[in-house]
Design a binder for these strands. Structure first.
Lengths: 213, 213
DNA sequence: TGACAAGATGAACGGTGTTCGGTAAATTAC
DNA sequence: GTAATTTACCGAACACCGTTCATCTTGTCA
């Protein structure tokens, strides 16, 4: 049955066409400024057609973010294989996370700085499940990196889970404020240099985890 | 001229009536779920009337957030006067910041986790100026608290400004993730206890600033 | 060739922020 | 006391938005 295959191939093609157009507009303008009508008109289809491929606007952008975050996971797993010094591996991983956020501001903000209720209208769709899975695996990289440091005796902490989550909170804080407050051309707030902030942040995190000698 | 005064008093009254209604709805439902029509109907005025008192939706909620954040500043300044141990003062202040965010989730998220372009459509209005001023003074509390710790020899760091900003980023990270990711009924992510996370976070921050002995 | 199914859509629904011309009342001037 | 003017307000509209659904076209199969 070659016909059915071609059909489903064509369906997949339009699906990715929608995703591509959405992605472009999303990167340019951010979630709330991209309308389904804009996406539809860019690919020369009716807005209603999008609903044959995605449940709603939220799920479309969820799967968009999911796709992007796979890159971060891959990058972190690459680091894990290539960098043998555990502390350096941790530090580079944290730096990658921040860099990833800076490179994909809209995806980052939509995923971590937006109340779910504002864009996700039903739980447990297939896309969300997958995205969630990627997120867990990405977080696992951090967990493993910390545990390796502890085993090597380079860092010291009691509760791996709590420490992993706290560390995530810290680098999220750096990323989030850099995206949302830094480089607002706010002439009144005396932001110091961006790279310096990042380095300072990473130093402080690692110092907070170093064994008390 | 008593008439003019009464008039401006009445005008101020309606202004605060709008703000009150907006505040209630805002706390209940969050920025994007509160429409000017809802506010208007709650106070039994036309939506158009709101535009006689506020430039647009963004400015209305900006001044709302500003009002709320004054409370945090007051709390921090109170701490500064009453708590003599500088490190304890710093720690309590950081804790207050997080607690404030948890108590006013919508205000916090709108102020720090929302791209300005999504709700603020023109710079430098009177309300924004005032809010900005409050923000700067609040940040100054953190700066002073850190400096006092350094002078007392309890903490050690090079650059006060960078350290203040980094510290803010950390507590913002804690607050932001607690508000936006924690207690999503995400059965898959193994969040540890909230209080434990906060304590762990504060410990890590202070350890990251302790002098190397 | 006719029946059927899948894909795409036009038009509509109920909502949004925002603008503007007009109105009615309160104030001022005469 | 009446006319002119300022003020506060609002109905209606504009241009959007996400979403739904009956309808239509078109490719497929018997």
């Amino acid at each position: 049955m070659g016909i059915a295959e071609r059909r489903s191939r064509e369906k997949e093609l339009l699906r990715t066409k929608i995703l591509d157009a959405a992605s472009q507009l999303f990167v340019e303008e951010g979630f709330p400024n991209v309308s389904l009508r804009k996406i539809a008109s860019r690919i020369e289809y009716s807005p209603a057609t999008i609903y044959l491929y995605f449940k709603d606007k939220g799920h479309l952008f969820s799967s968009l973010c999911g796709e992007t975050f796979v890159q971060l996971k891959d990058e972190l797993e690459r680091l894990e294989r290539e960098e043998t010094d555990p502390v350096l591996c941790l530090r580079k991983g944290l730096r990658s996370y921040i860099g990833f956020g800076l490179q994909h501001p809209n995806q980052y903000v939509l995923t971590f700085d937006t109340p779910r209720s504002h864009y996700e209208f039903e739980e447990s769709s297939k896309e969300c499940q997958e995205t969630n899975q990627v997120a867990l695996e990405t977080f696992d990289c951090l967990r493993r990196a910390l545990e390796r440091c502890r085993i090597a005796g380079a860092l010291e902490f009691e509760d791996l889970e709590a420490t992993s989550q706290t560390t995530w909170m810290f680098i999220h804080g750096i990323t989030s404020l850099l995206l949302l407050q830094f480089s607002q051309n706010d002439p009144h707030f005396p932001w110091v240099d961006k790279e310096k902030l990042i380095e300072n942040g990473l130093d402080m995190i690692l110092r907070g985890l170093r064994p008390c000698r």
